[in-house]
Structures are given as C-alpha cells and as structure tokens.
Amino acid sequence: MRALAYDTERTLSLRWTDADPANPADRSVTRTLEQDGHGTRLFLVHEGFGPDGPARAMAHRIVGRGGQRHVLPARGQVLEQPG
C-alpha cells in the first residue's frame, strides 16, 4: 500500500494491488473533507472495486455492505448531535 496524496486535515488517498496473480486488482480509496457553511462534507471515492471478476465482485459486495452497516448509521448519529 502506498499513499498517493496527503493533505493534512483534507485529503488522504491510498492505493494497493492485490498479490493474487490469478486475479490481480489495482485499488484506491480517496477521502476528502471540504468545509460547507458551518459543517464539513466527506467525499469517499473507491476505485478498482467493480464487479469484474470474482475477487473484485467480492470486494464490491464487502465495500457496499460496509457503507450500509457502518457509514450510513454513523452519519445519522452525527447528524442527530446538537451543533
């Protein structure tokens, strides 16, 4: 894994390649924070997790479930907190 971009308190972008020669996958995840009025927006960009091939399809399902099980409920909890 290597860092593609890093900007303190704003951006972190990581890239890695799976070691399986039968089904290699080149993946990256970028997280960016942007101020928006009195709040902050979080942008997540996942690349290389598409449904092409069995390893990518499995990663695609795992990432999707993680968003549904963890990111969305956490977002709701944050939004419910008094500002």
Rank of each mutant, 00 (worst) to 15 (best):
Met1Ile: 01
Met1Arg: 01
Met1Glu: 03
Ala3Leu: 13
Ala3His: 03
Ala5Asn: 10
Tyr6Pro: 00
Tyr6Ala: 11
Glu9Thr: 07
Glu9Arg: 13
Thr11Arg: 14
Thr11Ala: 09
Leu12Ser: 04
Ser13Cys: 00
Leu14Pro: 02
Leu14Trp: 01
Arg15Ile: 05
Arg15Val: 12
Trp16Asn: 02
Trp16Phe: 05
Trp16Met: 05
Thr17Tyr: 07
Thr17Lys: 14
Asp18Met: 04
Asp18Gln: 06
Asp18Ser: 13
Ala19Cys: 06
Ala19Tyr: 06
Ala19Gln: 13
Asp20Pro: 05
Asp20Arg: 14
Asp20Val: 10
Pro21Met: 03
Ala22Tyr: 12
Asn23Trp: 07
Asn23Ala: 14
Pro24Lys: 06
Pro24Met: 05
Ala25Leu: 14
Ala25Val: 09
Ala25Trp: 07
Asp26Arg: 12
Arg27Tyr: 02
Thr30Met: 14
Thr30Asp: 12
Arg31Glu: 15
Arg31Tyr: 13
Arg31Pro: 00
Thr32Ile: 04
Glu34Val: 05
Gln35Glu: 12
Gln35Gly: 11
Gly37His: 01
Thr40Ile: 10
Arg41Ser: 06
Arg41Pro: 03
Leu42Met: 13
Phe43Gln: 13
Val45Gln: 15
His46Pro: 02
His46Cys: 11
Glu47Arg: 15
Gly48Val: 03
Gly48Ser: 03
Phe49Val: 07
Phe49Ala: 03
Pro51Val: 05
Asp52Gln: 12
Asp52Arg: 14
Gly53Met: 10
Gly53Ala: 10
Gly53Leu: 12
Gly53His: 07
Pro54Met: 10
Pro54His: 08
Arg56Asn: 10
Arg56Cys: 01
Ala57Trp: 03
Ala57Phe: 06
Ala57Gly: 08
Met58Lys: 12
Ala59Glu: 12
Ala59Trp: 00
His60Cys: 11
Arg61Thr: 09
Arg61Val: 09
Val63Gly: 03
Val63Pro: 00
Val63Arg: 02
Arg65Ser: 13
Gly66Trp: 06
Gly66Cys: 05
Arg69Trp: 08
Arg69Cys: 11
His70Asp: 15
His70Gly: 03
Leu72His: 03
Arg75Lys: 07
Gly76Ala: 14
Gln77Tyr: 08
Gln77Cys: 05
Val78Arg: 14
Val78Gln: 13
Leu79Met: 11
Glu80Gln: 11
Gln81Glu: 09
Pro82Gln: 05
Gly83His: 08
